[in-house]
């Protein structure tokens, strides 16, 4: 698999030639198995119903801006966690447990899309999906289809970030070399890199200076 597609304007290409997976010979076998396993064919969807899967795919593509192959298979990774009940255990007293919260919130996404445009969320055009999601993000603590909007947003982004940024291809675009055992680091300090790290070629690409969101 080659790198994930990411336009330069969106932060792509800042660490040319950098590959976390190329460091795998320096990882301990237990860690290497866990990380390299994420490159394997992902498990089939078992938890989500087909309708939920469709909504979840569209949701994760939006949240992580994945609109072309290759993709981190976020929907399969989240589905696997829910099928295994690999949650953090806790739930808010005004939200169901994670599995039920996922079903309820994906159903609500489709109902919201139906009421706006008469189709499911997955069938909305991309900009329509994005507008709908931004509306939910902006609702704060208000109820949205009977669920507190901020808790729904937190649930979605938490699972999305955990899956996407556990993937070695996602590490390549952020300059993170992944596991560091047993090698460790020898060159600590500001602007001091290890021989295997790649310096950012666009250090002026400060995301906080962009005013588009």
């Amino acid at each position: 698999m080659t790198g994930l597609p990411l336009a330069d304007a969106d932060g792509g290409g800042r660490y040319p030639g950098f590959s976390a997976l190329a460091q795998a010979p320096h990882w301990d076998p237990v860690t290497a198995a866990v990380v390299q396993g994420r490159m394997a064919l992902p498990p089939d969807v078992r938890f989500f119903t087909p309708a939920e899967e469709a909504a979840a795919r569209a949701l994760f593509d939006q949240l992580l801006d994945q609109h072309a192959e290759p993709r981190v298979p976020v929907v399969n990774m989240v589905d696997a966690r829910l099928a295994e009940d690999e949650t953090d255990g806790w739930h808010y007293d005004n939200m169901p447990r994670d599995g039920a919260a996922w079903r309820a919130s994906l159903g609500a996404l489709d109902r919201e899309a139906q009421s706006r445009e008469g189709c499911t969320f997955a069938l909305l055009p991309l900009d329509g999906q994005a507008r709908l999601l931004q509306d939910i993000c902006d609702r704060g603590q208000d109820l949205w289809h009977g669920l507190p909007a901020d808790r729904v947003w937190g649930l979605w982004t938490r699972y999305a970030c955990t899956a996407f940024y556990s993937h070695p291809l996602a590490w390549d675009e952020i300059g993170f070399a992944g596991p560091a055992y047993p090698r460790g680091y020898k060159n600590l300090g500001v602007d001091r890199l290890e021989p295997f790290e790649v310096r950012d070629v666009r250090p002026e690409a400060d995301p906080t200076r962009r005013a588009d969101r």
């Binding site: 969106d10 932060g11 992580l64 952020i174 995301p207």
Partner: peptide, 20 residues
Amino acid sequence: VAAQGHWGAALRRYMSDYPH
């Protein structure tokens, strides 16, 4: 980063800045 309300392209862009 997501807690700042960033998602989609903005999240990926912010994350690409991680070393800074």
